[in-house]
Amino acid sequence: MKRTANFIARTLAVGGLVASLAVVGAVTVRADDQKLLNVSYDPTRELYQEFNEAFAKYWKDKTGNTVIIEQSHGGSGKQAQSVIDGLSADVVTLALEGDINAIVNKSGLIDENWRSEFPHNSTPYTSTIVFLLRKGNPKGINDWGDLIKDGVEVITPNPKTSGGARWNYLAAWAWADKQYGGDQAKIEEYIKSLYVHVPVLDTAARGSTVTFAQKEIGDVLLAWENEAYLVLEEFGTDNFEIVTPPSSIRAEPPVAIVDKNAEAHGTTELAKAYLEYLYSAEGQAIAAKNHYRPSEPSLVADQALVSAFPEIDLVSIDDPIFGGWKEVQPKHFGDGGIFDKLYAPN
């Protein structure tokens, strides 16, 4: 009895020692290191992993300073909310303009003219929405109309929390608008039946990808183009294939400095250099390599990376049928908006 007690006491003591060492270890960051927090959306993990390394090297060569770039990833809407609630990001690289506008409107941390701060409306790379299918395309899905055929299960995340999901929704809307000649009732009917075909509404794009690729639920994943190619790389081309529909949407994931936070941290200059580097030859090449369509394709040294992107008819968010994010966000995705009206959980 005594021995067991001693044993337990000793083990607990060792555990305590380890824990206190951990406390000491956690606070050893060198003083002259600069830190930058990039709050981003879900599928950019691999892009920024590679880009951050490249930028840290560039910054070290240029200024001699070491920069540690911290990343936070999640659904774009959720990430914006976290920044509003006080997550002290120096830069945000989110899935859509609407989420950055939300930060502007609800917290005032970002200057309202952020879109003109960097080239191409502060969008260093664009993407589009494509279909990821099971190998051989057994259900014959080639265009948006095929998604509502009987027995087709569509995987897409929740547009209320995920930026990618909003692009999915809008790409489908743009197709239906053209298909039904702008007949509002018919478009809504299409969107409604599209979401009836969705068995799981994940909160973020990466969750949907895992649902489709790892848990093998559904026949088609509406995915960011970059995310679809990543799945092919990670899971192999034996099980999946990509179909690029004849038309889709030009998804413009923008970037911005969180001005007030960067000022408070003294990182404004660093944050600016970081986002500018996305537009450099190296930044654009890294984007293309990670299957984002570079905004300045001519800068990319290896043009094979650029020509790998299929030509596709892309509708812009600023097209009259949408009228920009400021109009789209409340009309479609706000509380009581069109999505709320059309989506009934089954």
Partner: peptide, 12 residues
């Protein structure tokens, strides 16, 4: 590593 450290710290 930092996750393990943080978990131990929080528990401690």
């Amino acid at each position: 590593q930092t996750a393990i450290q943080l978990t131990l710290t929080v528990a401690a």
